[in-house]
Structures are given as structure tokens and as C-alpha cells.
Nucleic acid binder design. Structure first.
Lengths: 156, 156
DNA sequence: CTATGTGCAAATCTTTTGCAGGCTA
DNA sequence: TAGCCTGCAAAAGATTTGCACATAG
């Protein structure tokens, strides 16, 4: 690969090519879509999050571990700040399923989740298989911002 | 009122009658149902939680504030430990809606909640008005422990 | 060049825990 | 009396923040 006019800010890629070009390109586009500056740290995290086109559910610690394992240095504080920035830019959503940790989801539409109580993992549940026939009448003057559905799983 | 054989451990009530007798009696029964010893602190918190027969949603800090306002001294650590004990005894349920705080609900069956994003308040949503026609197929070897439905509200 | 973003350490906030003393059964 | 509870302070985690330096536009 080569650096070029197409990805002017991905300088560090010239030195450490350890993830796919496509992954970084996807991350770069994703950042652009959110109106965020493509800094080295953000590109690293973005590539880890959306580089393969799959939806991902991470905790700050988890993403920090991933980035460290990839050989790129990103401080834990920056991981926190960056995840927060991604959420504010509408690129991710915070999902609350466990009081002790925050989970961040790269899929931003309203959809149900499976929470694996044993492993503390969070995964998407097929949205088309959930049918809510009736929702409680919303209190006067209020609107529904979002409906969170978390299906908690335990070993059968 | 008078202390008697019916409520042998509610000694402190003879000195500070500030909540209704019925409230304390309900609290005492509630504790007994959970197999928990009726200590002064637990009776105070129980009366605040179920004394009027209504369901209640509290945070540890919130309940601590309530108990302090009622004139009874209960340490914050004890409020935390006690709420935890109530949950383990099956008297309450922890509801996760806000990553920064834990909410505890005196209603223990599986039912939907309204979360008022602006005020950070949690209330019950009428369970009979929610109809889930289809739930995503559960992964092999897993069982549904619980389905949490949180309807997040914002001002219309 | 200027506004943003980053790193580090310290600060915050919520919740838990260790231990000595108190109280229920 | 024996074991469960409580209070306090300290510990433990998770997340945020202040500030000096680095970097994108």
C-alpha cells in the first residue's frame, strides 16, 4: 500500500501495516461521516470497531485491550473520551445492561440485545424476530426516545 | 400505639412515631417474608419502601436521603448493603437503566419501565399494555432469564 | 496558525469491604 | 450466647477532568 491523496492523514500506516487497508479506509470514512478529525488514535479505534464491517459491542477496557494487543498505543483515558465522542457524533450508542460497566455498540438503530449473564457479553438479537404488538401508552407531554429491550440469557 | 407481642422488635417506634404504624407493620411483615431479621435500620428502610403499599423505585443515595430526612440515622454503607440484601432475599429487583447509578424496584415481577431521561426518574409502565408478539429465537443451550424493557422518555 | 485532540495523573463518584462493636433469636 | 448486622473509614472500580504538549485543517 501507499499513502496518497486519498488518505492524507493515515501517516502511521506507512510504518505499521498490521490491519487491512480496507479496515483503515472504512474507519476513516466512518470518522468523516461523524465529522470527526482522523487522528492516529481515532483511526486505530475506528478500524478495530468497524474495520471488518461487522457490528461490535465493546467496553472501554475491552477496546483498550484490543488496541494494546494490536500494538498501537492509545491511552485508556483517550479510549474513554473517544468512545464518548463517537457516541456524541452519532456513530455509536451506549447500551446499559450492567451497572458496573458501559457497553458501546456500533449499530445505532433501535434493536434488541442478548446479554449473556455468565460471560458478561453483549450481542445483537435479530431485530426482525422481535415484534412488539403494543407499547404502553406514553404519559402526556412525553415522547418515546428509545425502547431498550435486553434479553438476559443464562445457561439452559 | 403500643409495643406488644405483635411487633416485638420495633422498640424504636415507642420513641419516634413519625411514620404510620401500618407502614412499619407492613415493613416488618415484608422483612419476615424475606426471612430477614427486623433490625432498626431495616425496619426504617422497609417502611420507607413498602410502608404505603405502593411500588417504589429508588437509588441508594435517594433512599439514604429519605431515611435521613425522616430523622432516622442509617449509614450510607448500610443502605447499600441492605438494598443488596433485599434483592438477594427476593424482595426487590435491581433495574439497570443508567450506567452511573443502580435503581432498586420493590416490584419483583418482570415488567416494563419508563425512564424519564430529563429527571432520571424510573417508574413502572403498565405491564398489561405491553404485548410482545414475538421474541427473538434464543441461542442454543441458553434460556431467557429475564427480558428488560425500558421505554426512555423525553419531553415531547 | 488556531482549534482540537491526546496523554498522564489526579480527582470524582458509586459501590464494596474489613473490622470492632451491637443486637436478634 | 452465637451469629447476623451495622457503622465507619478505607478500598476498589469505572469514568472524568485539568493541564501541557501535539497535531489537523
Amino acid at each position: 500500500m501507499k499513502a496518497g491523496t486519498a488518505r492524507p492523514y493515515i501517516k502511521f500506516m506507512d510504518m505499521h501495516t498490521r490491519a487491512s487497508d480496507a479496515g483503515y479506509d472504512r474507519g476513516a470514512e466512518w470518522l468523516k461521516a461523524g465529522g470527526l478529525r482522523p487522528t492516529r488514535q481515532r483511526l486505530v479505534l475506528a478500524a478495530l470497531l468497524v474495520g471488518d464491517g461487522e457490528n461490535r459491542h465493546v467496553t472501554a477496557e475491552g477496546l483498550y485491550a484490543l488496541s494494546s494487543a494490536s500494538g498501537e498505543r492509545v491511552s485508556l483515558a483517550t479510549v474513554y473520551n473517544t468512545l464518548r465522542a463517537f457516541c456524541e457524533a452519532g456513530l455509536m450508542n451506549e447500551v446499559v445492561v450492567d451497572g458496573s460497566r458501559s457497553y458501546f455498540d456500533t449499530r445505532v438503530d433501535d434493536h434488541p440485545h442478548f446479554y449473556w449473564e455468565e460471560s458478561h457479553a453483549l450481542t445483537d438479537a435479530p431485530a426482525d424476530e422481535l415484534e412488539i404488538a403494543a407499547l404502553p401508552r406514553v404519559p402526556k407531554g412525553m415522547a418515546v426516545a428509545r425502547v431498550d429491550v435486553v434479553i438476559r440469557l443464562r445457561r439452559a
